[in-house]
C-alpha cells in the first residue's frame, strides 16, 4: 500500500511537472483536453497489462500473443454483427473466443514448455501470435471497418472533452478488475494458491497446490481479459488486426511498471503512459515520437526498481 502511495505521488508529480512545462503559454483548457484524452488510451494499456500480469503471476508465461488473441476476438465479434446476429451475443462470442484461444494454448502447448526459462516461454508465445495474426489477416482482407458499441453514442463532458461511455467503461473495468482480482487473491482459496505459485512453484507443488487447476483458471481469466481488451482496442483505436496484435508491446510496458506483479501499479503505470503520450502532443520536438513514452517510462521504472542493486544472482529475477 505504501509503495502504491509513493508511486502515485511520483506519477502525479511527474505528470503535473510535464503538463506545466509543455503547456507553458497554452490555455489551461487545452491541457485538460489532452489529459482526459490520454487517460482513455492509458486505460487500454493498463487493461492489457492487467491480463498479462494475471497470467504471468500464476504461470510464469509472459504472453506475447495477447494482442493477437484480442484481434481474433474483435474481428470475429465484428463478423457476427455483420451477419446480423444480436450484438450482445456477438460480443460474448468474441470474449469466448479469447477464452478458448488462451485456454487452448495454455493446456495444449504451454505444458511442453513448463521447465524452460521464462524468456523461452515468452518467445514461444510469439509463434502463437504469428499463427493467429496470419489466420486473422487471411480470413479478413484489409477493408476499412468499424466496430461500434451502443455506449459510443452517449457521452459526458469532462474538462471540455466529450468522453463516451465506452471510454468510461474501459476505465471502470480496469479499476474494477484490479479491485476484484486483488480481493480474489487475498480472500479465496484459489487466490491463495495463485499467490503461492507466484512465490515459489517448486515448493507450491510439493505442498499440494493443484498447479494444473490454478494455471487453467489463470489462462482462462487472462484470455477473457485479452478478448475484452481486443474489443475495446477495435472500438477505440482501430479495427486492424495488425495494429492490435502489436499493441501488446506497450501493454508489456504497463505490466513492467507493476513489476509483473502488482495490479494497482500496472493500472497506475498504464494511465501515466497514456497521459504522458498525449501531453507530448504539446511539444513540437517530441510529438512525432510520442508513442515512445510507454517504453521510456518502463525503462525508467526498471532502472529505479533496481537502483542500489549491484549483483545479480542465479534465480534472482
Amino acid at each position: 500500500m505504501r509503495e502504491f502511495a509513493v508511486a502515485l505521488v511520483i506519477c502525479l508529480g511527474g505528470i503535473a511537472a510535464l503538463a506545466l512545462f509543455l503547456g507553458m503559454g497554452k490555455p489551461v483548457a487545452v491541457i485538460g483536453l489532452f489529459l482526459v484524452s490520454g487517460l482513455a488510451v492509458g486505460s487500454l494499456y493498463a487493461l492489457g497489462g492487467i491480463g498479462l500480469v494475471v497470467l504471468y503471476r500464476a504461470t510464469g508465461v509472459l504472453n506475447l500473443s495477447a494482442g493477437a488473441i484480442g484481434a481474433a476476438s474483435v474481428m470475429s465479434a465484428w463478423q457476427l454483427v455483420e451477419w446480423q446476429l444480436p450484438a450482445p451475443i456477438a460480443w460474448l462470442a468474441g470474449l469466448l473466443l479469447g477464452l478458448v484461444l488462451s485456454l487452448g494454448f495454455g493446456r495444449m502447448v504451454a505444458p511442453h514448455l513448463a521447465w524452460r526459462e521464462p524468456v523461452v516461454k515468452a518467445v514461444a508465445t510469439l509463434g502463437f501470435a504469428l499463427v493467429l495474426l496470419g489466420l486473422v489477416s487471411f480470413l479478413w482482407s484489409d477493408d476499412p471497418r468499424r466496430f461500434s458499441l451502443p455506449t459510443d453514442r452517449s457521452s459526458i463532458p469532462i474538462l471540455g472533452l466529450r468522453v463516451t461511455l465506452t471510454r468510461l467503461l474501459v476505465v471502470a473495468v480496469a479499476i474494477g478488475l484490479v479491485v476484484a482480482i486483488s480481493q480474489l487473491l487475498l480472500h479465496t482459496r484459489i487466490g491463495l494458491q495463485m499467490r503461492a505459485l507466484a512465490n515459489n512453484r517448486r515448493i507450491s507443488s510439493m505442498i499440494g497446490v493443484p498447479i494444473l487447476r490454478v494455471e487453467t483458471i489463470a489462462w482462462g481469466v487472462s484470455g477473457v481479459i485479452f478478448g475484452f481488451t481486443g474489443l475495446m482496442f477495435g472500438n477505440l483505436v482501430r479495427l486492424e488486426p495488425n495494429v492490435i496484435t502489436f499493441l501488446v508491446i506497450p501493454c508489456i510496458a504497463a505490466a513492467i511498471c507493476g513489476r509483473l506483479q502488482s495490479l494497482p501499479l500496472v493500472l497506475l503505470g498504464g494511465l501515466a503512459m497514456g497521459v504522458v503520450e498525449s501531453l507530448l502532443t504539446l511539444s513540437d520536438t517530441f510529438k512525432a515520437v510520442r508513442p515512445m513514452a510507454p517504453y521510456v517510462i518502463a525503462i525508467l521504472v526498471l532502472l529505479m526498481m533496481n537502483r542500489g542493486r549491484l549483483l545479480t544472482f542465479q534465480g534472482g529475477d
Binding site: 526459462e117 508491446i249 506497450p250 510496458a253 509483473l260 515512445m292 525503462i299 545479480t312 534472482g316 529475477d317
Partner: peptide, 24 residues
Amino acid sequence: PALRMRGLYLALVTLMVAGGLEIL
C-alpha cells in the same frame, strides 16, 4: 541496466529499447 538485471527483466528492457527504436 543489464548489470543489475537478468532473465526476463533484462529481456524486457531490451524489448522496450526495440519498441522505442521502431518509433524513432
